[in-house]
Write a protein that binds this DNA or RNA. Structure first.
Length: 893
RNA sequence: GGGCGGAUAGCUCAGGUGGGAGAGCGGCGGCCUUACAAGCCGUAGGUCACAGGUUCGAGCCCUGUUCCGCCUACCA
């Protein structure tokens, strides 16, 4: 049905009444659905899956808004768009949440056992897993929800298994005993990336290690005295003369009875500390390496719970690692072995999930051999199969890939993808297999035990671009939409996620996972601080949405999303853009007061200058907005259209068109104004829809001549007849001149303190025939916007007395001041203007008097400077002329 | 230790390839003008961090300095 005059609009836009309605409408009408097969150009994005435990924060809001802009924009441009949504199972985080719940019920995962625990997690996920998804929906996210995926889904789990087995068979996954980062609270290994380093105030302890025989032993410096219980050597540099006498000798490890050797290794830095380094292979990655080279034993003195082990000795066994440090230090003091303690600032690793101090610990884990995978992933970016935007992130990507270390992928938790590896209890054979094995292929035993560990969540996230599309099956979806068009993400997970997807995509699909990676900024608070619960500076998007509406939030984020710069957000800014939404609403309200049925095509024969100007501007803006989005310049697109809607359409066009709309200028002009305002509103809504989907959909349905959802509209640049829109530089120039004339008169009104209500008489003097007719033809327009009773046009000549003056180009504008003109005020006004011009003129003169400039600068630049100079001088002369007149008149008074 | 980014109006920020700086908010003055006071009209604010250099010409290019961020690193 084509809408006739629909209904009257409220005075102010009320988002809360509108948003839920349209979201439901879009979903019900399947407007977000991608077709697996279509003749349209495919465009695809996979969502960065939020944690199931997650709560929507501003980072998500920005991320989702930008993706939604791209998806809605591409749909409007006629593409077949797939936005693949889903969540990830967030192994450690989710397990933590469920464990906390169990603790509230006075039980624990160990008490209820693994099977029941995993069931409890699934229960939790069924109950609460949709929370973040619903929040994404309230942001307006136009994901294809029927395809929603979860990293623990059957299909994705199959992909994980297949990848694990194939990498293992290719020698790219191995298991081994290495130093890893252990979180004693989460009770699991962490990958290097999952450790956050922070500078902390600590101490450095100087400990005397006595020789077994007579003579002075070395002083060893350490920040972690409790680990000395696990020392298996002291190392010195082979060239260090201070310690030559120690080569080949042994020391007694204080607080224990153990003898440990003094070894030499050039790893030791002679200039640091005392030059003697204690070696603890089980609790320090470097010491581990040195231990391997020198075939030293490893003594694990700290256990998985962060408490000292049996090996730490009777006295220390069972002590918490921090408590143990205090005891060890005290004991060293008591034995006279502690030489001194110094303050020391050093960086310490913390678990990225729970902030607990991580403990480097020796442990048997699974690793991905990343180097070969990284090589392909680097190549793909080098030759631009994948483009990273903004480009500066390329270097970070390359650097990280070049320094990449093997990736520890096993986690000692229960919630996650089980590792498809079994050990034969009888012969010890390790079996890695896609299908669960029944018997040992080596000895035929049926006693097989599956590895109890699960895989790092990021291991499954790394497969997201293809696992969500059905891989390992060769689906139509994959065929249509892989590689995806663009990945939109924050730089904080460039390595965690993007780099790993690149590795897995290149390896398993022989094709990059995405053509573009758009890396956006972080959202910070108004002081530039990272928003965090602990600092209490979090702006909750849901609260903002409730208060200002989703569109306001989205438009704010877009308008501030300049490439490569963080967004500092404050409510004040959101309020400003809420006002913009309301402005748009009211522009529609005014338009729809007059446009009550769909006007036909645009007929320029009865149009006015403002009409032609507006259409010309519309065309330019539509192209610019599209161009900006294509280049991921969301802020430019948003600002371009903001400026256009508010300061051109509303401030100038609608104001100029009012008399025409009210029929004061006759049928023809009225028709033209109706058509143009309809057209501008119509096209503007489409341009704005990707940014502010709700209000645009609402107005769309109120706009006569539209049918169905705005999501089905054709983008202005693609619409039939777009090319016919006038690109009219003459109209733009003429309109610009008239605007200046109007501004000149308004300035007089403002500066001379003339009440807006009183209408004025004005005279324009010029010898230019073109300008004379321009003013004549647009007398009504100027009079209306400048609030004039009369406007007369004359050739240049004597300026009337008792008038205030404005100069525009060659036009001398005189405003008759009823009653007594305030000469002092007008003098002041003119002097100010003259002084301003003087500055410009001096600057130009300096240039034009410079021979170097005249001989070396390009001709067009010189020409521009000359004409500008002439213009300013002429204008100034006229102003001076008028100033003189004012002065002479005022003297007679 | 290495790397990257930033410093522009009171505040927050824009300023493709160098031709004399813009917006929003805030300030000030005036308006309830029949779409909007979440508004309208007018207006004032800047040696573009500092010091050099290249150039006829630098916010933009080069060098150095200062002050902030961020990333990264195994110096005990």
């Amino acid at each position: 049905m084509v809408n006739e005059s629909k209904k009257t609009m409220k005075k102010g836009y009320a988002p809360e009444e509108v948003e839920a309605k349209w979201y439901a409408y879009w979903e019900q009408n399947k407007l977000f659905a991608a077709s697996e097969q279509s003749g349209q150009k495919p465009f695809s994005i996979v969502i960065p899956p939020p944690n199931v435990t997650g709560v929507l924060h501003m980072g998500h809001s920005l991320n989702i808004t930008l993706q939604d802009i791209l998806c809605r924009y591409r749909r409007l441009r006629g593409d077949n768009v797939l936005w693949m949504p889903g969540t990830d199972h967030a192994g450690i985080a989710t397990q933590n949440v469920v464990e906390k719940n169990l603790a509230l019920q006075d039980t624990s995962r160990h008490q209820i056992g693994r099977r029941k625990f995993v069931e409890a997690v699934w229960d939790w996920r069924r109950k609460y897993g949709d929370a973040i998804i619903n929040q994404l929906k309230s942001l307006g996210a136009s994901c294809d929800w029927d395809r929603e995926r979860f990293t623990m889904d059957e299909g994705l789990s199959r992909a994980v298994r297949k990848v694990f087995v194939e990498l293992y068979e290719a020698g790219l996954i191995y298991r081994g005993n290495y130093i890893i980062n252990w979180c004693p609270r989460c009770q699991t290994a962490l990958a290097e990336l999952e450790v956050e380093h922070e500078e902390e105030n600590g101490h450095i302890y100087y400990v005397h290690y006595p020789l077994t025989e007579a003579g002075d032993g070395p002083i060893v410096a350490t920040t972690r005295p409790e680990t000395m219980l696990g020392d298996t050597a002291v190392a010195v540099h082979p060239e260090d003369d201070r310690f030559r006498h120690l080569h080949g000798r042994s020391v007694v490890l204080p607080l224990t009875e153990r003898e440990i050797p003094v070894i030499t290794d050039s790893y030791v830095d002679i200039s640091f500390g005392t030059g003697a380094l204690k070696i603890t292979p089980a609790h320090d990655p470097n010491d581990f390496e040195i231990g391997k080279i020198h075939e030293l034993p490893s003594v694990r003195v700290i256990g998985e719970d962060g408490c000292m082990t049996e090996a730490a000795g009777e006295k220390y066994r069972g002590l918490d690692r921090f408590e143990c440090r205090r005891v060890v230090v005290q004991d060293l003091k008591d034995n006279g072995l502690l030489q001194k303690i110094e303050d020391y600032r050093h960086s310490v690793g913390h678990c990225y999930r729970c902030q607990t101090l991580v403990e480097p610990n020796l442990s048997k884990q699974w690793f991905v051999k990343t180097r070969p995978l990284a090589e392909q992933a680097v190549k793909a970016v080098e030759n631009s199969e994948t483009k990273i935007v903004p480009e500066k992130w390329r270097n970070d990507y390359f650097k990280w890939m070049e320094d990449i270390r093997d990736w520890c992928i096993s986690r000692q938790i229960w919630w996650g993808h089980p590792i498809p590896a079994w050990t034969c209890a009888d012969c010890g054979k390790l079996i890695v297999s896609f299908e669960d094995p029944k018997t040992c292929p080596a000895c035929g035993s049926g006693q097989l035990e599956q590895d109890p560990d699960v895989l790092d969540t990021w291991f499954s996230s790394a497969l997201w671009p293809f696992s969500t599309m059905g891989w390992p099956d060769q689906t139509r979806l994959l065929e249509t939409f892989y590689p995806t068009s663009v990945l939109v993400t924050g730089f904080d997970i460039l390595f965690f996620w993007v780099a790993r997807m690149m590795m897995m995509g290149c390896h398993f699909m022989d094709e990059v996972p995405f053509r573009d990676v758009y890396v956006h900024a972080l959202v910070r608070d108004e002081n530039g601080k990272k928003m965090s619960k602990s600092s209490g500076n979090v702006i909750d998007p849901m609260v903002i949405i409730e208060k200002y509406g989703t569109d306001a939030l989205r438009f704010t984020l877009s308008a501030f999303a300049a490439q490569g710069r963080d967004i500092k957000l404050s409510e004040k800014r959101i309020e400003g853009y809420r006002n913009f939404i309301n402005k748009l609403w009211n522009a529609a309200r005014l338009t729809l007061m007059h446009v009550t049925q769909a006007p036909g095509g645009i007929d320029l024969s009865t149009s006015g200058l403002a009409d032609r100007w507006m259409l010309s501007r519309l065309k330019t803006v539509a192209n610019r907005v599209a161009e900006a989005i294509d280049g991921y310049h969301f802020n430019i697109a948003a600002n371009e259209i903001y400026q256009f809607v508010w300061h051109e359409f509303c401030d100038w066009y609608l104001e100029a068109a009012k008399p025409a709309l009210y029929g004061k200028w006759g049928e023809g002009r009225q028709q033209a104004a109706l058509k143009v305002s309809w057209r501008v509103l119509h096209d503007t809504l489409i341009l704005l829809h990707p940014f502010i989907p709700f209000v645009t959909e609402e107005i769309w349905h109120l706009l006569p001549g539209t049918e169905g959802s705005i999501m089905k509209a054709v983008y202005p640049s693609d619409a039939a007849g777009f090319d016919q829109l006038p690109n009219d530089p003459a109209a733009e120039a003429d309109m610009a001149l008239l605007m200046e004339v109007i501004n000149g008169i308004r300035n007089i009104r403002g500066e001379m303190n003339i009440p807006p209500a009183s209408n004025l008489d004005a005279l324009v003097q010029t010898d230019s025939a073109r300008h004379q007719s321009l003013i004549k033809n647009n007398k009504a327009l100027v009079s209306n916007l400048a609030r004039l009773d009369s406007l007369s046009i004359e050739p240049a000549g004597e300026k009337p007395k008792a008038t205030a003056t404005a100069i525009v180009d060659d036009l001398v504008i005189s405003v008759y001041l009823k009653g007594v003109i305030d000469f002092a005020r007008e003098t002041q006004r003119l002097e100010k203007e003259i002084a301003k011009l003087d500055k410009e003129i001096q600057a130009l003169l300096k240039k034009l008097e410079n021979d170097d400039f005249l001989s070396k600068a390009p001709a067009d630049v010189i020409e521009k400077a000359r004409s500008q100079y002439d213009e300013y001088v002429e204008k100034q002369e006229k102003l001076v002329n008028n100033l003189d007149k004012i002065k002479s008149i005022s003297e007679y008074q």
